[in-house]
Amino acid sequence: MATIEVGGKSYETDEEGYLVNLGEWDMDVANYIAKTESIDMTEQHWEVINFLREYFEEYQIAPAVRVLTKAIGKKLGPEKGTSEYLYALYPYGPGKQACKIAGLPKPTGCV
């Protein structure tokens, strides 16, 4: 267990830096985690984060990358539903980096 301190608020994380309590997530901690992953958050980045949070709300899991890619294509347009697009935004993997920024657990089966 570890904690992140942002703006006087503290957030509990696991040993890999994923938030323990999804309910604690907010934009401040998302921006902070993004910075530690060397990602400058743009509108396109947020679009993926919001999608992931909605997906989790509905299905209670973080999607596998293949499933995320397909679902993004359906929701945000085919030009965005490609691994090139998602890896350009999140070079170390949308599953790993975007889920962490979105405050979700690591996707099932993601190592």
Partner: peptide, 9 residues
Amino acid sequence: PTYRALEGY
């Protein structure tokens, strides 16, 4: 709710 995600998989 995760059973409903299976279709996407």
